[in-house]
Design a protein around this nucleic acid. Structure first.
Lengths: 232, 232
DNA sequence: TAGATTGTTAATCGATTAACAATC
DNA sequence: TAGATTGTTAATCGATTAACAATC
């Protein structure tokens, strides 16, 4: 019996090093597609089926999944429930993540009410806004609802809720200041919707969602297509 | 004088082939950073300065810009205004792009009111929702405002406005159907906020913005960091 | 056993980086 | 001319793909 692959030195096989960013970015897609399959009563899926449903090639899918471990059965495929669980564990969805949202304008409002968070273990535990007129406003239904608190409560909210993830939905001008305060209060992951490049120390992860950028990329390709039509 | 680089066979040098997706995705960032510099009265910028402000390496920045043409001056840097214009032209921001938004819930509402669109040539020309209670609602101020129209008007709106970009902000269940109708009506670029993998024919570009996915990627890294702290 | 499908390898492709000649 | 900085090259790195041996 050849030792093809040493047993991980750590308890959890998934904790091996070297799962690439590109793979991590696709895992949530697989997770969602698999969850929806499970809901429809599908119990087993092949890499080909899952790949098509996820919009990737089956080779890429198998390669991605192989980073988590050997969870398929040759000649058969993957057990949907088991794979959902393994991906969730890899992504850290088996634990609860307290999230604070700063800037409760139109967008912050929409984010606070987004159902897709809670169902994946993200618990919105704080809503902050600098506008005194907005402070105190209650979002959501009473039992689970949350009141908007003044921005000055930021440090307090982060510490009492032990939130490690902050969502910035403020105007651009306020974003860096809020970011600095979040980091100082102990937040180490930031999802940024403000159209600015945030400066953060090492060890803090920032992901940026930029609506204008997305449209601009589409416009670029739209222009290409329009040029191509022109030539034809 | 050696012919190092043939003149493009097309009128516009920027229309050369082979500008990579990775580069295209960064151009909007450069464009925004440069615009903000111009607003502050900066007239000239070096690749090093622009790179730092954009959060990339200067080598990457110069490589990216070199795909557009030779718009810098050795020993000096880049003229801010000129570079802004060249990037805008490359991205197709020098023309107007009519955009329709489908699904005017919290998120669609926020998108419709987002100022970052108009300032970059994206004109929201249609708002559609399937909820009769919402139809007729006026968004924005009177002169520029827009009324929500019934979903059944989709084809009509796309055709009369000649929109080639559609934004889907509907619930997941409705997204594919709306997508199919948009494509049938002639839309060739789609920005999808619904948490589903859309199926589209070749030639249609889809970009997906997925809030839950972004948080899940952060959670993955957060878990890693927490593991690392545990071990320390 | 025969058929199916995984997990992995090796080849390919593409993007990033470092370094520097060109040139202002 | 001396100093600065671009544009480009070549090396490196990482991700994707195709193919197939392993194995259910």
């Amino acid at each position: 019996m050849p030792i093809e692959q040493g047993v991980s030195p750590r308890g959890r096989s998934s904790a091996r090093r070297g799962i690439s960013e590109a793979t991590v970015a696709r895992l949530p897609i697989y997770h969602r597609v698999l969850t929806s399959m499970a809901d429809r009563g599908v119990t087993t899926v092949s890499s080909e089926e899952l790949a098509v449903a996820s919009g990737v090639s089956s080779a890429k899918l198998r390669k991605d999944l192989s980073h988590l471990g050997s969870y398929g059965t040759r000649g058969v495929g993957y057990e949907v429930d088991y794979l959902v669980y393994q991906i969730a564990r890899e992504l850290g969805l088996t634990q609860d993540w307290p999230v604070v949202i700063i800037g409760i304008g139109n967008l912050g409002h929409a984010l606070a009410g987004y159902g897709g968070f809670a169902s994946r273990g993200f618990r919105v535990v704080g809503l902050l806004d600098s506008d005194p007129a907005r402070v105190g406003e209650q979002l959501g239904q009473e039992p689970t609802g949350l009141a908007i608190r003044p921005l000055s409560d930021l440090e307090d909210v982060v510490r009492t809720t032990d939130a490690s993830i902050g969502v910035i939905a403020t105007p651009a001008i306020a974003a860096q200041g809020v970011c600095d305060r979040l980091v100082a209060a102990g937040v180490t992951s930031i999802l940024n919707f403000a159209p600015v490049v945030l400066n953060t120390p090492d060890g803090v992860d920032v992901r940026k969602v930029d609506l204008a950028t997305e449209l601009q990329i589409l416009a670029f390709h739209e222009q290409r297509k329009s040029d191509a039509r022109m030539r034809a």
